[in-house]
C-alpha cells in the first residue's frame, strides 16, 4: 500500500452529507474529535462497504488527526475492513463453545460451498469469509454473524441453506434494479 504520494481528498468533497452529519453527531458526544474515530470509520464503512485509503485520509483530515494514527486504529479493530469485502461478510465464531459443538464441520461445509478460505471473497463478490471471536451465543452454538444477523444452532446443512437463501435474495434484488 502506498498512500504517501496520493493527494489527500478534501473531506467536504469526499465524504457525503449523510456521512458528515453522522460523524458530527459522534463528535458532539465526545470530548475530542479523534475520540469519534472508530465510530467515523464504522459510519463510512456502513455506507461504502469498506475503508479505502481515500476514506481513511478523508476521515483523518476531518477529525484533525494524522492518517497514520487513524490507520493504527482502523487496523486494530476486527470489524473495520481495510480491504474490499463481499456483499455479505460471514463472521463464523471460532471460539470454544462453538469448537466443542461442531464448528469444524460447519467451517468445512461453508468453505467447500463457497470455494474460499478464511480472508477471501468469492469471485462473484457476494461472500467474504472471516472468523470471529466468541459471538456470545454459546448456549446455541455453533453461531455465525452475517451483517447484523446472528444465525445460531448451525449444522453444515443449515449454514449452506442460509448462504443459498442470501444468494437468491441478492440475485432477485440484482434483477429488480
Amino acid at each position: 500500500m502506498n498512500i504517501v504520494n496520493q493527494v489527500m481528498p478534501h473531506p467536504n468533497n469526499y465524504l457525503t452529507d449523510a456521512e458528515l452529519a453522522q460523524i458530527d453527531h459522534e463528535i458532539s458526544i465526545m470530548e475530542t474529535r479523534e475520540a469519534a474515530g472508530i465510530e467515523a470509520l464504522k459510519i463510512v464503512q456502513a455506507h461504502r462497504g469498506w475503508i479505502s485509503d481515500d476514506s481513511l485520509l478523508a476521515i483523518a483530515h476531518y477529525l484533525q488527526m494524522s492518517s497514520a494514527e487513524l490507520e493504527g486504529v482502523a487496523t486494530f479493530y476486527n470489524l473495520i475492513y481495510r480491504q474490499p469485502v463481499g456483499k455479505f461478510v460471514i463472521h463464523l465464531c471460532n471460539s470454544v463453545s462453538c469448537h466443542l459443538t461442531g464448528y469444524a464441520e460447519v467451517l468445512a461445509a461453508v468453505k467447500q460451498y463457497l470455494g474460499i478460505e478464511y480472508g477471501q471473497t468469492t469471485q462473484d463478490g457476494l461472500f467474504t469469509l472471516l472468523s470471529n471471536a466468541c459471538l456470545g451465543g454459546c448456549d446455541k452454538s455453533p453461531v455465525m454473524m452475517i451483517g447484523s444477523e446472528h444465525y445460531q444452532q448451525l449444522t453444515p446443512d443449515l449454514a449452506i441453506d442460509i448462504l443459498e437463501q442470501l444468494k437468491q435474495t441478492a440475485k432477485s434484488h440484482g434483477g429488480d434494479s
Binding site: A133, C134, G136, C138
Partner: peptide
C-alpha cells in the same frame, strides 16, 4: 462481553 463461553450480559 467477549469472554468466550460468556453470554449473561447479553
Amino acid at each position: 462481553e467477549m469472554e468466550p463461553g460468556t453470554f449473561k450480559d447479553r
